[in-house]
Amino acid sequence: MKHLLKTLVIGSAFALTMASQAMAQTKVTIGHFGDPVPYKALIADGSLEKATGWKIEWRQFASGAEVNAAMASGGIQISEIGSSPLSAGLSSGLPYQMVSVGKVIDSSEALVTRNGSGIEKPADLKGKRIAVPIGSTAHYSLMGALKMNGMTERDITLLGMSPPEIAAAWAQNAIDAAFVWVPVQAKLRENGKVMYTAGDVARAAGFHTFNAWVANDKFAAENRDGLAKFLRANFEINADYHKNKAAWNADSPKVKAVAASVGVSPAAVVPMLDGTIYPDAELTMSANWMGGGAAKTIKGTAEFLKSAGRINKTADDYGQFVNPEFARAAAAK
């Protein structure tokens, strides 16, 4: 009997220890931005937690620079991040890897000029007060727009602001223009006009921008299955959006869930979603992205940032930081 009790006690203690470890391993903090994207429809109903088995804490950031700081401190394990701060983070040796592409940016980020600012054409940007989240994809696109017109940041009054700060400054007529993403961009357009979208700058000058999914190196190595399941859920919701776009209307439960997460009306979300490409498994694994193209884009971005004095060094090869393993597993189902 004593032997049996001892066995039961040891067995129970072992089970509790293993359960505690499992619970600790499944707590994941994921960074995101306050923009409307299809996967946010999966947050409200807990679909991502069900798919991965993780207990997820979502942490919102105002810019990729904040994501890099959180990754450096170990405060998050996974995050969205724009291609410009991604290039900066990888160049500085932060311990994360790109595991997938989250979205390809087009009209969801744009340079908006305020009505009454005196800006009617690109040349009028010179000397004006232009706000942007420093180090973001929007900042990179702004630098591209200036270069297209023979200017640099020295030719304008550059003001580093978060999206909420941009909205407040705009309301006070304290800035003349801003390069920013939705939903704040939509507010600016109520009293302004779009001069360039990020897509315009990419097509005209090669300043391509995207959001990546990145994961802490150690976390990725220890959570391969969960990470693949996380990406698979993203691929599926992205595919659903593009295949059934008409169904993603203001009355759609998915759009309502996205709207609730962003804090705007469902009717406002519909056109906001339309300004971006959300990659499914096939596009993600294509030569343009996880098949090699992403590393080339990151390298080009890093080299431009270094030439502009925004970062101090670049890596010889960014392919070492782009890991297609998890996206490939997710695509294979």
Rank of each mutant, 00 (worst) to 15 (best):
L90M: 11
R203F: 11
F61Y: 15
G11A: 09
G31R: 06
G31M: 08
R203D: 09
A70P: 09
F235Q: 02
D124M: 08
D124T: 07
M290E: 03
A70K: 02
E303R: 05
K313D: 10
S12M: 15
L125G: 01
V269R: 03
A239R: 10
N191A: 13
Q320W: 05
P324I: 06
N312W: 12
K27A: 12
T152M: 13
K128Q: 13
M23E: 14
D317Q: 02
I43P: 00
Q320V: 09
I311N: 03
G309A: 15
L273P: 00
R189L: 12
K299N: 03
A168K: 14
R232Y: 03
S265G: 05
T52N: 10
Y96K: 03
A15I: 15
D317S: 05
F219A: 00
P38C: 09
H32V: 04
S79C: 10
Q97V: 15
Q21S: 12
I166G: 04
G275T: 03
P324H: 11
F14G: 07
E325Q: 15
E222Y: 13
D176I: 07
G34Q: 09
F61V: 02
E325C: 02
T297R: 14
V201A: 03
A212Y: 04
G292E: 01
P266H: 06
L231R: 02
F61G: 06
R59N: 01
H242W: 15
A267C: 05
A228S: 11
T197A: 08
S83P: 02
P324Y: 12
I298L: 13
